[in-house]
Every structure is written in structure tokens, then in C-alpha cells.
Design a protein around this nucleic acid. Structure first.
Lengths: 222, 222
DNA sequence: GGTTGCGAAATTATCTATAATTCTATTTCG
DNA sequence: CGAAATAGAATTATAGATAATTTCGCAACC
């Protein structure tokens, strides 16, 4: 009841809902009824509406005028779209970040990769993976570009969680290590090339559901 | 008083304010006082707040919690940022649009270029230029990507108008014609390369003000 | 005498509560 | 069986209350 400094009710609701949408607790296409959400958060529906607009800007919710908001739906086409946008934007960010990269930053990025490799569940893997990308891109110093990339990462995470809801096995991320090696040795173009392929790769893979059945799901690498 | 179909008061106010911000009628850093704006539009302040949030999503306004909204400021650094983001995203869109481009679309794009070349003022040049880009990119069928590009175009227009407020001279856009020629002859890679350079180029040029003095301003090509 | 710090008033953003318009779904009648 | 009308529910807008910030003035100190 004390974090009111620069923290409005609308943004708090927005973060809570974003968390639920990304994690899959709120399913794509589901209606967002402002009265119910307002009641749940003990607030009125005006800040809830503002939260919806914030989510809309991140591409997590969609507004249908006079008909309310829904959780944004997505299909394989949009997964591809997000991956390709991330690929070109992250390459752009990396190119500008390279002159400002320090050994300390690369060490922290390596630690993030190590954390991802030993993750026991999707959530912690995603957090570590996102930290890796953030670390090597942030020095570009382009706030608008970084904000766009963050939004795309949120969308990516949503797709990821929708596929690997239950099972997860650790694996070593060779791309991340190759990117770091190239960066350490001053081969920036090669690092950018690996990053572009790494982020842009999308495929379909068979996934075992909780019921033991096999189904197709999106496969996202990084 | 009849365009109420899918048109909420908030979005109408948002469009009106976006127009003013882009045209320069509202200057960067200026405070947006919701009560005054609400009174001007004969509405209450809640839809005005929503309009602010929409502008924020487009990068035209910035929110300072508990301190209200301001018209987004910008400097040469951000002009560069927007131009480079546009360059990589438009190239991505063009690559996906190429398979779906028809002769009819290219003809309409050529007409848009012709309209730009004969424009007598910045406003109509910008509208024609934007139409050209929209026409050749829209067939990519990637809604999220196109929405991002639209927002970046709005920002670009803002920068453009801030430079060429008064004087304007028509000139032939050779880049547009080269892009069209390459597309017609199936040389997609070359078209993409020209587009990337065309959009990404940013410089400073001396500009004659209304008072007859010379000052530096942003120079944006396309 | 000028500057700095404190305090109160006014302005402004934010939230709650209430009313009106619109969409959806169900039911009834042709 | 289909279409229209009505009832219910939810979004959208208005008005009023609350809390925070800024601004202005006064006093004290350098």
C-alpha cells in the first residue's frame, strides 16, 4: 500500500493483466470485461479502461469500438511477423550497441546465457533469454527502438508459453555463445548475422501435451 | 454529427490532437492540459485522457505520472532513430510485398510519385510521399508491421514539418522512380537496397526561415 | 539587498460514482 | 422456422470528489 510514487493504478492493473496474458492465464480472444476487472482490483472502471489502452499499445489486447476489448488473438502468421520484426530491429540495435559494448557487459550476458541453459522451466528460461538480449542491445542508446523490441519480446514470450505449457528440457544455447565469441573478437558483422538468423527462425514442432498426446506448436528459438 | 459508427469521442480527439502535433501547431514539450482540451471539444476529461494514451502509443505524447502529459520532444538523435527503424522495417515489408505486387499497384505508386513531384507545399508532398510508401508496402499483409511503419511515418512527418515550415520547392524524386523501375523488372533486391538508403538518409541542411535568415534543420528525403 | 527555504493556495491530474447509449441474446409472434 | 422486439448486460460519457504537484508569497538568513 506504499508504492504510489510514480505508479498509477492504471499502470499497475496493466502490468498485472499483461502478466496474465503473457503467461496464458487469459486466453487469446477472451473478452476483457471492465466491470469485473475493476471489481477484482477494487477500483473503478476508468483506470481499467486506461490499462486496456496500454495493453493495446503493446499489442496484447485489441479494441473493438463500442464492443469492448479482447485479449489479442494470434496465429502462426503473427508469430512469424513478430519474429521477423525482432530480427531486423535487434540487428539494428546491435549494430549501434557494438561500439559501446564492454567486457563487463559481455560477462553479464554470458552469465545470463548460463542461467538460461540450466533453467528447469520455461518461465525462468524466458526471463534469462530476455535478459541476454537486453544486455547486449541496451548500449545502443535508442529508447524508441528498445521499447519496440521489448513489446515484441512480450509477444514472443506469449507464443512461447502457449507452446511449452507443461514440459521443458534444458539445452545449451550455442547461438548465444557464438554471438558472444564474435563480439569479443570484434567480428561485429558476424555477430549480427547470427543474431538475425537466431531470432528470425520459426518452425513447427510436435509437442507432448499434458494428456500425453502429440500436437503441433510454435517453436521459437531465441 | 453523424459519423458515430465505430468512432468514439476519444479517438476523434486523438486524431485532432495528432494533427496539431504533427503540423507543429502544438510545440514539443508543451503541456497538454486535459481540462482545457476537454472544454474546447465540449467533452468531459475522461475521453481526453484516453486520447492522450492513444497519442502516447504513437509516440506523439509522453506521460509523466501524476504530472500530466506533454507533447513528445525530439532531437536530431531521435530523427535518426526513427529514420533507421523505418529503413529496416520498410525493407522487411517490401520483401514480403514483392510477390503480391501487381502492375496496377505500381501504376498507382507512380501516380503518387508524380503527385509528390508537382506538390506546391510540404503538406501535400508529405501526403503523396506517404501514399507511395503505403502502396508498395501494404501487400505484405503484415498488420503489426504496417502499424509500426505508420507510426514512424507520423513521427517523420513531424520532423519534416518542423524543418520546412515556410518554404518549399518541388523536385523530382529519382529514388522513387528507380525503386519502381527495379520492381517492374523483377530486381527486388535492388529495389530493397534503394529503399533502405532512401529512407535511412538523414542530414542537416541550411534552411531559409520566413525572416530570410538561414538556420540548420533536419533534412529528410523520403 | 539578494537569495534561499518554508508554507499555503490554486491548479491539475486521478479516481469514484452515476447516467445514458449501444450491443447481444432470448423470446415471442407471424 | 424465421424475423422482429424486448430485456439484460456492458461499454462509453458526464459530473463530482480527492490527492498530489506546482506556484506564488513571505520571511529568514547569508
Amino acid at each position: 500500500m506504499d508504492k504510489q510514487r510514480d505508479d498509477t493504478i492504471a499502470s499497475r492493473i496493466s502490468r498485472a493483466l499483461a502478466e496474465r496474458i503473457i503467461s496464458g492465464a487469459l486466453t487469446p480472444g477472451e473478452r476483457l470485461r471492465q466491470d469485473h476487472i475493476a471489481e477484482e482490483f477494487g477500483a473503478s472502471h476508468v483506470p481499467v479502461r486506461e490499462a486496456f489502452r496500454l495493453l493495446e499499445a503493446q499489442g496484447l489486447a485489441a479494441s473493438e469500438p463500442r464492443r469492448g476489448f479482447r485479449v489479442a488473438a494470434f496465429d502462426l502468421k503473427e508469430v512469424r511477423e513478430v519474429a521477423e520484426m525482432r530480427a531486423v530491429l535487434e540487428v539494428l540495435a546491435l549494430r549501434h550497441a557494438i561500439p559501446h559494448l564492454t567486457a563487463a557487459i559481455l560477462d553479464r550476458a554470458e552469465a545470463a546465457t548460463a542461467a538460461a541453459d540450466t533453467s528447469r522451466d520455461v518461465r525462468s528460461w524466458e526471463a534469462a533469454n530476455r535478459a541476454f538480449h537486453r544486455l547486449i542491445l541496451e548500449p545502443c542508446g535508442m529508447p524508441r527502438l528498445l521499447a519496440s523490441i521489448d513489446d515484441l519480446h512480450a509477444a514472443s514470450a506469449r507464443f512461447l508459453f502457449s507452446a511449452w505449457r507443461s514440459s521443458w528440457e534444458a539445452r545449451t544455447d550455442h547461438d548465444h555463445r557464438a554471438i558472444l565469441a564474435a563480439l569479443r573478437e570484434g567480428r561485429g558483422d558476424e555477430a549480427a548475422k547470427i543474431l538475425e538468423r537466431h531470432v528470425g527462425w520459426i518452425g513447427r514442432t510436435p509437442v507432448k501435451t499434458a494428456a500425453g498426446e502429440m500436437r503441433e506448436a510454435f517453436s521459437i528459438v531465441g
